[in-house]
Design a protein around this nucleic acid. Structure first.
Lengths: 191, 191
DNA sequence: ATGAAACTACCTACCACTAGGTAGGGTGGC
DNA sequence: GCCACCCTACCTAGTGGTAGGTAGTTTCAT
């Protein structure tokens, strides 16, 4: 594998475990099998690495959302898939969504990284609002009134559920916290 | 003011802004007006400080919950007050609930601190489950089915809403994310 | 009532260690 | 010959933490 990609991969899992301040060039160097100084050849500053890392992550996430859109026809199915995305990102409570991990330590984030982070949130809200609007029309989510308000609530719920799971070092709290949300969705389409 | 208390206060606001790794003895020393080494007189290790800090915070939070219980009779009112607690802790999106701030960087937390953190979550769930059970009976929260599941969801929602607000450095996202929750509560009692 | 002992609350000066980052050199493939 | 790639060696600034000292206060037996 490409050294550059190896560095990004290593940085991603470290950042999702310990946040932006929680991983160092020394860590990456050891894991990738390269000298610390050599990393600067690919990423002159840590800010450069973090920016590319988050951009890659956000892009991948948006791709996943697009794929969810094509693979699932009903709004309820899309939301179930969205939930699975966050659930799978947990990996037994050891890893967070990169955006959750970065949000917490936002004070130490370089400004460009912060912009991408906010863009990620905005894009997530756009997607959720669209799907929840469909759900409002077809009635596949129980008790829906305001799609946009519900979109913000859903995003906060997923991120918060990840956080409590991380604190407990287990995926169980995530499942408990999101059970009520899943219960509101109409039965899966079986075509 | 007591030097010890001044140190705890300074540490609290710093930790709620930047997490456990994000504040140093040097920072505290400067803010309190004392030499760095002198802090060790009160708190030999940073772990000691963090433990006492979180214990104080958790105790204060539980006191607030007890006060909410006596000051509000209806379940809906109690939940509104609970929401206000998290909302007020934000301070324009610059400060998080200490437990949210600590959860994110849980890897660097000393083990005793982690225990108090998990206890805080457990106590919160207990309180929420009790209040939501009452709400299930008196019907003051719309669309309630499982009180305990809803308790976990509510905690995750509050913590997640704080997190997105922190990322945006504004309280507005918190209000948007929790609007749907508030809308489910029956009208305030006016006696 | 007084003087020694002990304690509180700070200080200066330092430790070992890690962080991100830099300067400059070697080497192998196009 | 060039340049991507990786190296050794080093820097500055910070981290939590320690050693040892010093005023001022409290305690207490004589």
């Amino acid at each position: 594998m490409n050294t550059r990609t190896a560095l990004l991969n290593s940085a991603e899992s470290a950042a999702r475990q310990r946040g932006y301040d929680g991983f160092s060039y020394a860590d990456l160097a050891q894991e990738v099998g390269i000298r610390k100084a050599s990393i600067h050849h690919y990423f002159p500053k840590k800010a450069d690495l973090a920016l590319e890392l988050l951009e890659r992550y956000a892009a991948g996430f948006m791709d996943d959302l697009a794929e969810i859109d094509t693979a699932n026809s009903s709004a309820a199915d899309k939301l179930r898939a969205y939930h699975t995305l966050y659930r799978d990102a947990l990996v037994d409570g050891t890893q967070l969504c990169l955006c959750v991990a970065f949000s917490a330590g936002r004070d130490s984030l370089p400004e460009p990284v912060l912009r991408v982070l906010n863009q990620f949130h905005a894009d997530s809200i756009t997607w959720l609002t669209r799907v929840l609007s469909i759900a409002t029309d077809d009635g596949s989510v129980a008790g829906l009134t305001d799609a946009e308000a519900e979109a913000h609530a859903t995003l906060a719920l997923m991120e918060g559920a990840q956080l409590v799971a991380r604190a407990a070092d287990s995926a169980a709290p995530f499942d408990r916290a999101t059970a009520a949300f899943i219960a509101r969705l109409s039965a899966p389409s079986t075509h």
